[in-house]
C-alpha cells in the first residue's frame, strides 16, 4: 500500500514536470474603425491549451498602447478538457477599452495584445510563451467638433465668460466702460 502511494506521488510529479504549456486567444486579428475621441470596447477570449492551470499576463505592444486599457491584466485560466474542441469551456473573457485621440484625417494605429504565461522553474534559460492578437485601429476624423476641444480651449472660454459676467455686473451697477478718442 505504501509502495503504491509512493509510486502514485512519483507518477504525478513526473506528469506535472512534463506538462505542456499552451495559450490561446480569439479573435486572432481585429480591425476596428472608430471615430477619434470615441470609446471602443473589444472582448477577447483567452484560454489555456496546456495541461495545468496557468496564470496569464496580458499586455499591449505597438502604437495602440497609448490609448488602450486592459480591464484585467492577470488571469488564472484552467486548461481546456481534452480532446480540445469548440466552444471553449474554461476560457476567460477580457475586456479591452480603446479611446484613440481626435484626428483631422484617417489615421491607422497597429499593435498586439499579448497573452503570456510561464512555468519556468529557475533553470538557466526560462521561457515565457503565449499568443498575440493583432489589432488595427483605423481612426476616422471626428464628426463632432467637441472632439477637438482641448483643456486650453475650455480655459479660454471660461475666461471670456468671466469677463462677460463682470461686464454685465458692472452695467447693472450703473457703471459703463467707454472708449473715447
Amino acid at each position: 500500500m505504501k509502495k503504491a502511494l509512493v509510486l502514485l506521488v512519483a507518477l504525478i510529479a513526473v506528469i506535472s514536470v512534463y506538462a505542456d504549456v499552451g495559450v490561446g486567444v480569439s479573435p486572432s486579428k481585429t480591425v476596428i474603425q472608430v471615430e477619434g475621441g470615441e470609446v471602443h470596447e473589444l472582448t477577447l477570449l483567452v484560454f489555456n491549451s496546456g495541461d495545468d492551470p496557468l496564470e496569464i499576463t496580458l499586455s499591449t505592444e505597438g502604437t495602440i498602447g497609448s490609448f488602450t486599457t486592459i480591464e484585467t491584466k492577470k488571469i488564472l485560466v484552467d486548461p481546456e478538457p481534452k480532446p480540445h474542441e469548440l466552444p471553449i469551456k474554461n476560457g476567460r473573457e477580457v475586456k479591452v477599452r480603446m479611446k484613440p485621440p481626435g484626428t483631422s484625417k484617417l489615421t491607422t494605429y497597429t499593435g498586439t495584445i499579448n497573452a503570456v504565461g510561464s512555468v519556468a522553474t529557475g533553470q538557466q534559460f526560462g521561457g515565457s510563451v503565449g499568443v498575440a492578437t493583432q489589432i488595427e485601429v483605423q481612426v476616422t476624423p471626428s464628426k463632432s467638433f467637441w472632439a477637438f476641444v482641448t483643456t486650453t480651449h475650455l480655459l479660454i472660454g471660461a475666461i471670456l465668460l468671466v469677463l462677460l459676467a463682470l461686464f454685465l455686473l458692472l452695467r447693472r451697477m450703473g457703471l459703463h466702460i467707454r472708449f473715447e478718442k
Binding site: V21, G24, V25, S26, S28
Partner: peptide
C-alpha cells in the same frame, strides 16, 4: 475580426482562433 461571407441577406461570421502549446522542456532550458 473574423472571416465573413454574405449570401443575399444572410451573413455568417466565423470567429478566428489561435492556440499554441509548448513542450514543458522548452520553458526550462
Amino acid at each position: 475580426g473574423a472571416a465573413s461571407s454574405q449570401i443575399s441577406n444572410l451573413t455568417a461570421t466565423v470567429q478566428t482562433f489561435i492556440a499554441c502549446t509548448w513542450s514543458n522542456d522548452a520553458l526550462n532550458v
